[in-house]
Design a protein around this nucleic acid. Structure first.
Length: 653
RNA sequence: GCUGGCGUAGCUCAGUCCGGUAGAGCAGCUGAUUUGUAAUCAGCAGGUCACGGGUUCGAAUCCCUUCGCCAGCUCCA
């Protein structure tokens, strides 16, 4: 019998008979490893434990500790779910069932949509199948036989998949759970060896999806579930889902009196006074950041003739998302973006190289006619404003400008206590302009990222067709990622709009445009902040920073004077003048997450002080009004950070 | 936009399956209470049951339309 040499991760190697299974290798190393083994990695490829080793190879055994384990579990759980569904609902057709970042799903064609009771039944059935510790078996079927088999079983979608995925092959791989009567699926695998390995899974929701995600195809029922390596991890995940629900900005926005919606203005928020205070604080903060960075604030029209959109190219590719209006027979559109307006503004005067970079910052509202089904709270709206700006630079200024931008991004996210990551997207296969120009631009972006000392991912070929870009993702307090900042180079629009500057050589040159936003849309960023802080904004952002709480009516004059003094000092202050006990007023203020409660009664009125109660931290004792104002202003100026730069905010979890 | 679910007082929800005069808590208002660090007591008021149509002696409830909200519609066998 011939032998194969198996190399192990520790550098050792063993000679074993050809055809030895991965599971045998695990057994050979140690019985305990064999017990824990879920799959193998042979020459870098993830395979089943039942994979036979026919030639020399490096082998690694996958266990719960391996990075592949989670996806393996989830994909196997998807099969287990499909087995449960086909058992409970005979005649169900199966589509695809992949693992995802959060869990897994499986698409089915069923007679009627699933109800919550069905999902419970499915989960029960899965548990039952798991407890039976059934084997996942890989079988190689002749292609035609497999197609005939699935066709006969009334699974045309599987036949279609086999056709598409295995063209030119003679055999296709299928996986059974127990046997082909119980469950069989066309699948590359691999899987965990038996259903008993799956110990922590949950069926979550059902909704509809289309075959291959295309609305022209047949609608299917998608059942989502999640699986983890331990009950502890699963529980943590479910708790996280609950936590996310508690922080939902739509719920907190109403409870905190920030904003509301009306069915007659779908996708457009009504900002109440407190929400407006927050909005304005953000908008002014961005102005404070951008003015010293060389930006000028501009306001350009909200409505433009269709001619502009034809020039910019929006008319041909963005029209479905534009709100059109008619005036005296002319078709106009509300602007979905600021760029074309900024180009017209740039072109309204002769520009010299001495002026560049020119940086136009604008916060006026934009309108995008998003499909009704994608609207969601403040995160997906039809009307919003951005901390939008366009920088007009020379080719050689790109690197420095981008580096300045990265520093701005770092500063802003630092002020909000949001961790972030960056990714650089380079030239796609279909692109506009010269390869040399792209290479030059990409090199400058890379150099700028390197100089900034930031770690970043490379997204090859993911740039826009008009230029490369850098995107930033922030991670909120409960670990969710949001794309906010973007820095995009644009070579196309300066051509379209024939933008020029006069160079040092006294001839005309083409500037490069950098589209950039740091927080993106104020609406969406506020949603992120609400959920990040769980509604408990740091002092500098809080819509109401302090509320004065008089003990009894006779303290109202003094309380009013305190409130006036706070407002005079630039603080956002309220006065609770209701005839209620102090505990009631405090409870109310706590629920509204006001950072400071200032209790005033006889003692305070006499000594011209306030009793400070902190939202987090309770009673801080008496303080003179001036001392309170001074410390509050200091905290606002520091934006909640200690003087060493670290954040005082508790890690909300 | 498409598929499914949902829409009852400002908010959270009961009542809908099985048609028969619309309910609770919180918030609001009035009165009493004048209060010291997370809910004082009593009373009152508040609803074309999203909108429009249909079935019926009778519709919040059953059927259809429209609007809005929620979830999903990228993950590859």
């Amino acid at each position: 019998m011939s032998q194969v040499t198996v190399r192990l991760p520790d550098g050792s190697s063993r000679k074993l008979p050809a055809g030895t299974l991965v599971s045998d290798v695990a057994e050979e190393i140690s019985p305990r490893l064999a017990q824990a083994a879920l799959a193998g990695v042979v020459d870098g490829k993830l395979v089943d434990l039942s994979y036979p080793l026919e030639r020399d190879a490096s082998v690694r055994i996958v266990t719960d500790k391996s990075p592949e384990a989670l996806r393996l579990h989830r994909h196997s759980a998807a099969h287990l779910m499909a087995a449960a569904v086909t058992s409970l609902f005979p005649g169900t057709q199966c589509g695809i069932g992949p693992a995802t970042d959060e869990g897994f799903f499986y698409d089915f064609v069923v007679e009627r949509p699933f109800k919550p009771e069905d999902l419970e039944a499915i989960e029960q059935k899965m548990k039952e199948l798991a407890s039976q510790d059934l084997v996942y078996e890989r079988q190689m079927w002749p292609r035609d036989e497999a197609k005939a088999f699935f066709a006969e079983r009334g699974e045309p979608l599987k036949v279609q998949l086999i056709d598409e995925k295995t063209e030119g092959e003679t055999e296709v791989s299928c996986y059974t759970i127990k046997d082909k009567e119980t469950f069989i699926d066309f699948c590359v695998g691999p899987h965990v060896p038996t259903t008993g390995k799956l110990k922590a899974f949950k069926v979550l929701t059902a909704s509809s999806a289309y075959w291959k995600g295309d609305a022209r195809n047949q609608p299917m029922q998608r059942v989502y579930g999640t699986a983890f390596l331990s009950d502890k991890d699963l529980k943590a995940h479910l708790t996280q889902i609950e936590e996310a629900k508690k922080r939902d900005h739509r719920k907190l926005g109403r409870e905190l009196g920030l904003f509301t919606f009306h069915q007659w203005a779908p996708g457009a928020a009504f900002w109440m006074d407190k929400g407006t205070a927050l909005y304005n604080t953000l908008a002014n903060y961005m102005r404070e950041v951008l003015f010293p960075a060389g930006y000028v604030e501009v306001k350009t029209p909200l409505i433009y003739n269709k001619a502009l959109w034809e020039r910019s190219g929006h008319w041909s590719f963005y029209r479905p998302n534009m709100f059109l209006v008619e005036s005296e027979g002319e078709i106009m559109s509300l602007k979905p973006m600021n760029c074309p307006g900024h180009f017209l503004l740039y072109a309204s005067d002769v520009r010299s190289y001495r002026e560049l970079p020119i940086r136009f910052h604008e916060q006026t509202p934009l309108h995008r006619n998003e499909a009704s089904g994608v609207l969601s709270g403040l995160t997906r709206v039809r009307q919003f404003s951005q901390d939008d700006a366009h920088c007009f630079v020379t080719q050689d200024q790109i690197g420095e400008e981008v580096e300045r931008l990265i520093r701005l991004v770092q500063r802003v996210y630092g002020d909000f206590g949001l961790p972030y990551t960056a990714k650089l997207s380079t030239r796609p296969d279909e692109f506009l302009g010269e390869v040399a120009t792209w290479d030059h631009a990409e090199a400058q972006l890379k150099a700028a990222l390197d100089r900034s000392g930031m770690a970043y991912d490379l997204n090859e070929k993911d740039g826009a067709f008009y230029g490369p870009k850098i995107d930033f993702d922030v991670t909120d307090a409960i670990g969710r990622k949001w794309q906010c900042a973007t820095i995009q180079l644009d070579y196309m629009q300066p051509e379209n709009f024939d933008l020029k500057y006069i160079g040092a050589d006294n001839t005309e040159h083409r500037p490069v445009v950098i589209h950039r936003a740091i927080i993106g849309s104020f609406e969406r960023f506020i949603a992120i902040l609400i959920e990040h802080y769980a509604g408990a904004f740091p002092l500098w952002l809080a819509p109401v920073q302090a509320v004065v709480l008089p003990i009894a009516d006779r303290h109202l004059p003094y309380a009013g004077a305190v409130r006036d003094q706070l407002e005079g000092a630039g603080l956002r202050a309220d006065l609770d003048r209701r005839q209620e006990k102090i505990g009631y007023k405090i409870r109310e203020a706590q629920l509204h997450k006001v950072p400071f409660m200032l209790v005033v009664g006889d003692r305070e009125a006499e000594t011209r002080t306030v009793s400070v109660r902190e939202r987090s931290g309770g009673d801080k004792g008496a303080s003179s009004i001036d001392a309170f104002i001074a410390s509050a202003r200091d905290e606002i100026a520091r934006k909640g950070k200690r003087s060493d730069g670290a954040s005082e905010l508790p890690a909300a979890s």
